[in-house]
């Protein structure tokens, strides 16, 4: 085996921490295209986006994909940020848009392929018993049958525990619309629980034991 070697020095891309920097300063750096600003933005906001995505999708691996998608698209969209002091809101709204797109894509795919969408609940670090996992999977299955905006409104308000105002800003809709969407979602979910005989049975057994 003939061998010719070339050695290239690498520079690891480790995000540096700049806690002293305000979000507004970071946003300005991002808009100007500073490479370090992308890493710092990731450091600050990737966990936020991840949590929102987990709450909405119920899957850590899918949430990771969403986070990756959000930040890779953000690199292209950063220059559209008009209010540097609202970087957090900008990223949350952007993440919501990506999730909306993803959820709509799934609905279309489901419709085109005539196959039921699989409900993936893989919060691997979570210590839940088998019944609870099953309930959770079925619950996210019901959430996936809601409209995209209803699903997002319900998940952000009640699972991610965002306020009405925060949800409205993130979804770029009015507070009254959030209220309407979450109420409609709750009605549909209740209806879904009642008509899902396995889930209702699981709930009765689980809660019966719990209350006993």
């Amino acid at each position: 085996m003939g061998t010719r070697s070339s050695h290239i020095q690498l520079a690891l891309v480790a995000p540096s921490l700049r806690d002293d920097l305000s979000d507004a300063d970071l946003a300005r750096a991002l808009v100007s295209g500073a490479t370090w600003a992308y890493a710092e933005t990731w450091n600050r906001f990737a966990p936020v986006v991840f949590n929102m995505a987990v709450s909405t999708l119920g899957s850590a691996s899918e949430a990771e994909d969403i986070v990756q998608e959000v930040f890779s698209r953000l690199a292209r969209k950063a220059k559209t940020l008009r209010q540097p002091e609202s970087l957090g809101s900008f990223i949350r709204s952007f993440a919501i848009r990506v999730m909306k797109w993803e959820l709509r894509r799934r609905r279309v795919q489901k419709w085109l392929t005539f196959e039921p969408a699989e409900t993936l609940v893989d919060m691997v670090a979570v210590s839940l018993d088998v019944e609870s996992r099953d309930m959770l999977r079925r619950f996210y299955g019901l959430l996936s049958q809601l409209g995209v905006r209803e699903r997002l409104a319900y998940a952000l308000r009640h699972i991610e525990s965002m306020t009405l105002e925060e949800t409205a800003v993130a979804m770029d809709i009015s507070v009254s619309t959030v209220k309407r969407l979450q109420d409609r979602a709750a009605d549909k979910l209740l209806e879904g629980i009642e008509t899902n005989i396995e889930l209702a049975g699981l709930l009765l057994r689980k809660r019966g034991r719990h209350e006993a």
Partner: peptide
């Protein structure tokens, strides 16, 4: 429909999400 069922499931989802470590 029993709203407590929905409440229970929502809390279950919230607990699961909160158990994920940062």
């Amino acid at each position: 429909p029993d709203p407590s069922h929905l409440l229970f499931l929502t809390e279950l989802a919230r607990d699961a999400r909160n158990q994920l470590t940062e």
